[in-house]
Simulated assay, not measured.
Amino acid sequence: MARLSLNAVSKSFGDKTVVDALSLTIEPGQFVALLGPSGCGKSTILRMLAGFETVSAGDIQHGDQCLSSTKFHLPTEERNFGMVFQSYALWPHMTVMENVGYPLKIQKVDRQNYQRRVQDALDIVQLNDFKDRLPSQLSGGQRQRVALARSLVTEPDVILFDEPLANLDRHLRESMEITFREFHRRTGATMVYVTHDQAEAMALADQIAVLKDGQLMQWSTPEDLYTRPNNEWVANFIGQGSILRCQSVSGNQLLTSTDVIGLLYDQTEHQGRMLVRPQHVDLSATSNMLQGTVRECIFRGERYDIFLVLENGDTLHAYHTEPLEIGETRQLSIQQAWTLEPSHDHDY
């Protein structure tokens, strides 16, 4: 396996730039998610990696080999990349075994290697007992595992996923996330996974590229994205939390409870922004207290989501083990917060 690099890659359709000077380095064996709202360019990036689209600027390298540039384009069939589509794309008249083995049939692989590789792929996705069934006889999750096995059977260098869980219900998506993690551990393949679902990306990926309007907002681990977002837009997009106005402060700093109190109490101006995650709000505090009025209380099973309005008018999201009355005034403290660079774009 080799490193996969996108170097200042852009893609335009007419006068519209869909991907804008994107640079990423994907190490061998990494599981990478391309995450962003609809229209952010993530599927176009995947299509350029697959060879379905050319680049308008920059280049894509796989190890020492150039896959795409403005002067060269390696055809899809010569890239040795596997692809798993949202729609599964299975042949309805073929059995599971025939669907999985179809790429090898096209490559005219000899019978012995054909049988071994198909069997290995079916074993990895745990579908050996279903190899003689037709797609119509399978559940959605089983069909997706057939598509996984088919992508693996050619022993690709990289596997590309185009929102593969989008058509599944919530329970099945959670089950398939486990399948994808096991699949990655067993194969060690480099994987690039497109999704608009942040929970899916956080659960699966080693590294996440957060995209907006064709531009890279942040390239980090799931933990870093959640605890240390680069800016206000990323903080709003990733996870649950509240962005509070405060005294002007430099971005990308971890604030203590005392810091938070000082910045919020100074009401001379509101140029600063801080991110507060709900688990860092203490509604039973007896020191370093703020005050908020309960606006909403929502039962979530294991907890209640509480939304309070602070004295400066900002809304604060907190968790609590018991329900609170709408309109109730509560004393609270914020245990920690993360400062943000203000964003002038509030189209979240």
Rank of each mutant, 00 (worst) to 15 (best):
V281F: 08
F72A: 14
A201R: 10
N252S: 15
L67D: 09
L216R: 03
N231Y: 05
N80P: 04
N99L: 04
V19S: 02
F161Y: 15
Y193G: 08
L49Y: 01
L340E: 07
D224R: 12
V146D: 11
T321E: 15
G141L: 11
Q126M: 14
I106V: 15
I306Q: 10
R228G: 06
L46Y: 02
G82C: 04
C246L: 10
A147C: 08
T76H: 05
I45K: 01
K71D: 15
C66S: 14
F81R: 01
S257I: 00
T221I: 09
I306K: 08
T195A: 01
L310I: 08
V281W: 08
V153G: 12
S284V: 14
P75Y: 02
S287A: 15
F52I: 09
P229D: 13
S287V: 14
Q207N: 04
I238M: 12
E78S: 11
Q207I: 09
F180C: 02
Y319A: 03
A209G: 09
F85Q: 06
I159K: 06
P28I: 05
H280W: 12
F72V: 06
N288D: 15
Q291V: 13
V118Q: 05
H270A: 13
Q240I: 04
F52V: 03
V109K: 04
E98W: 03
R143L: 10
Q30E: 15
A89K: 03
E27M: 06
F237V: 11
L290V: 09
Q218V: 02
H346P: 02
R303Q: 15
M1N: 01
G58S: 11
V96N: 09
T190A: 00
A33W: 02
I208N: 07
S257K: 07
M48Q: 12
P92K: 12
I106T: 12
A201C: 05
Y319V: 01
T315W: 02
Q65M: 13
Q65A: 12
Q291W: 06
I208S: 05
K11P: 01
P92A: 10
R185V: 00
R330V: 09
I243Y: 05
Q267D: 13
P323F: 07
N113H: 11
E325Q: 13
